[in-house]
Computed example of a mutant assay.
Amino acid sequence: MAMLVAASALAPAVASAAPPPELDFSKYPRVDANRYVSYNYDNNGRAFFRAAGFYCSIGQYPGRVACKGSVATAPHGSQGVLLNNSQGPWWVTPTGTAAPNISLLPNARFAAPELPVGRSIGIYDVVCAQPRAAVVSCSSRGRAFVISPKWHKFYAPAGVRDANPPADRLPPSLR
């Protein structure tokens, strides 16, 4: 229930509107997060999962989540997206704000499990889900992103610099 309330705070259009299904994490049963955590010292306690063609990591710090992969509506040169509880979501580019300090992949070998469609994972104060094939959504303290190979949607307080694509490029639930 708490995630439903948190997700509703992300919906910028109408305060009383229900969150889009991609951010209603109460609909997606949680997986056992222990399976996704790398206990290799070089990976700094991060958890990793694969979903919808993206390779995502949660941690090394509470509230941090990043996904590596291509999104058609991302700026040229983007390698993925990053957010934490107080910043983002942002695109990760070779010369951007987060680079070269962010590692989108494990530093040491780890076979990241696939997050099943219709399931979620929660670690620290991050929740991610694969609401349907080719879609990944993640949230941390009033910030969120929903990505697919074809489009993206960011949710953050006013002033976040990475803009959303035009509404006609998004699925109806995210317009």
Rank of each mutant, 00 (worst) to 15 (best):
C67S: 07
H152E: 02
P171R: 14
K150S: 15
P94T: 06
N85Y: 08
A6P: 00
V81P: 00
N84I: 04
S137G: 04
F54I: 11
Y155C: 03
R143Y: 02
Y39R: 15
R169L: 15
N164W: 03
A7C: 08
A6K: 04
G118V: 12
L174A: 10
S8R: 15
D42K: 09
D42W: 08
D32T: 08
G80N: 04
A163P: 00
R46W: 09
F49P: 00
S78D: 06
A98Y: 08
K150Q: 15
M1S: 04
I121C: 02
S38A: 12
V65L: 06
V71P: 02
P116Y: 07
A167Y: 15
C56R: 05
P131A: 14
F154I: 07
P75S: 12
I58G: 03
V127P: 00
G69E: 09
K68W: 08
S148I: 11
V5A: 06
L104V: 05
R50H: 11
A144V: 01
L10G: 00
A47G: 06
V127M: 06
D168P: 00
V65T: 05
A2Q: 04
A13V: 05
Y39S: 15
C128I: 07
S78A: 15
C138W: 00
A7H: 03
Y41N: 09
S16I: 13
V92T: 01
G122V: 05
S26R: 14
A167F: 12
A156C: 12
Y155N: 00
L4P: 04
A7M: 06
A9Y: 02
G142V: 02
R119S: 08
Q130L: 07
R109F: 10
S78M: 12
G77C: 11
Y55D: 10
A158G: 04
V37I: 15
C56L: 06
G80P: 04
P165E: 10
V127N: 01
A9C: 06
A47T: 03
H76R: 11
V37T: 12
A18S: 10
F48L: 12
Q79D: 14
R30H: 03
V127A: 05
R175Y: 08
G118N: 09
K153A: 14
P100L: 07
G159S: 09
A52R: 03
F54S: 02
R175K: 15
H76F: 09
G80T: 08
P29S: 08
F25R: 01
R30V: 04
P171K: 12
S8V: 07
S57Y: 01
P172Y: 09
I147K: 03
F48E: 02
F54M: 08
A33Q: 04
R161F: 06
S38C: 13
C138M: 07
Y36E: 09
G96C: 10
P19N: 06
N40E: 14
L104G: 03
L174R: 05
P94N: 14
A18I: 05
Q60R: 13
F54Q: 01
D125R: 01
C138Y: 02
A66T: 06
V14T: 04
N84A: 08
A11V: 13
V126L: 01
P106Y: 06
S120K: 03
P166N: 07
L170F: 11
P149E: 12
R132C: 01
W151K: 09
R35A: 14
A51I: 12
I147L: 14
K153Q: 11
A2W: 02
P62N: 12
S103H: 11
S148M: 12
A51F: 04
